[in-house]
Amino acid sequence: MTAALELVDVTAEPAAIQGRSPLALALRRLRRDKIAMISLAVIILIVLMAVFAPVFAAITGHPPNEQYRDIGLTPEGLPRGPNGTFWFGTDDLGRDILVRIAYGARVSLLVGVFATAITVVVGVVLGLAAGFLGGITDTILTRLIDVVLSVPFLLVAIALVSITGPSLSVTVLVIGFFSWASVARIVRGQVLSLREREFVEAARSLGASDGRIMFVDVLPNVLAPVIVYTTLLVPVVIVTQATLSFLGLGLPPPTADWGGMINSSQNYYTTAWWFILFPGLALLITTLAFNLFGDGVRDAFDPRADRS
Rank of each mutant, 00 (worst) to 15 (best):
G207K: 02
S182Q: 11
T231D: 04
P225R: 11
T271A: 14
G165P: 12
P253G: 09
L141K: 02
D217Y: 13
A202K: 10
P235A: 00
G250I: 00
L249R: 02
F199K: 03
V228H: 02
L194H: 01
S193A: 15
L141T: 00
A203N: 06
G189W: 12
R197C: 03
L206W: 10
V216G: 11
I140S: 01
L233F: 08
S245D: 12
T231S: 15
F278G: 04
L149F: 13
A159M: 14
P225L: 09
Q190R: 15
L247G: 00
G189N: 12
P220D: 02
G248E: 04
D257R: 00
F199H: 06
N267I: 10
V172G: 07
I175L: 11
V170L: 15
F278Q: 08
G207L: 02
R143M: 04
S209Y: 04
V161N: 08
L173K: 11
G207A: 00
V170T: 15
L160W: 05
F275L: 09
A203L: 08
D146I: 11
Y268R: 08
Y268G: 03
T240L: 14
N263C: 01
T240R: 10
P253Y: 11
T270F: 15
T164Q: 14
Y269N: 06
P166H: 07
A202V: 07
R197P: 01
G259P: 04
V187T: 05
P225W: 09
A256Y: 01
L168W: 03
L144V: 14
V187A: 03
V239D: 10
F178W: 00
V222F: 13
V172T: 09
A203V: 05
L232V: 09
D146E: 15
P152Q: 13
I175Q: 04
P225H: 11
V228R: 01
L283T: 05
I145R: 11
A256D: 04
V183H: 06
D146W: 11
L277D: 00
I145P: 08
Y229M: 12
G211C: 06
F199R: 05
G176F: 03
W273T: 14
W274I: 07
Y268L: 09
S182N: 10
S245R: 07
L194F: 01
S167C: 03
L249G: 01
V148I: 14
A256T: 06
F178E: 03
D257L: 00
G207H: 01
G259V: 00
Y269V: 15
L149N: 13
T271S: 14
T139Q: 13
N221D: 11
A242W: 09
L281F: 15
L141M: 00
E201T: 13
Y269K: 06
R197W: 01
V191S: 08
V216I: 15
Q266W: 09
V234K: 05
S193I: 08
Y269E: 05
P166C: 12
M261P: 05
F153K: 10
A224R: 09
I136E: 00
S205T: 14
V187F: 04
L154S: 05
R185A: 13
I213Q: 03
D257V: 03
L244N: 05
E201G: 10
I145H: 10
S209D: 04
P225E: 08
G248I: 06
D138K: 00
A224E: 07
P166G: 13
P235H: 02
V228L: 01
L219D: 08
N221F: 09
V187D: 01
L154Q: 07
L277H: 03
S179Q: 03
T270E: 13
G280H: 12
N267L: 15
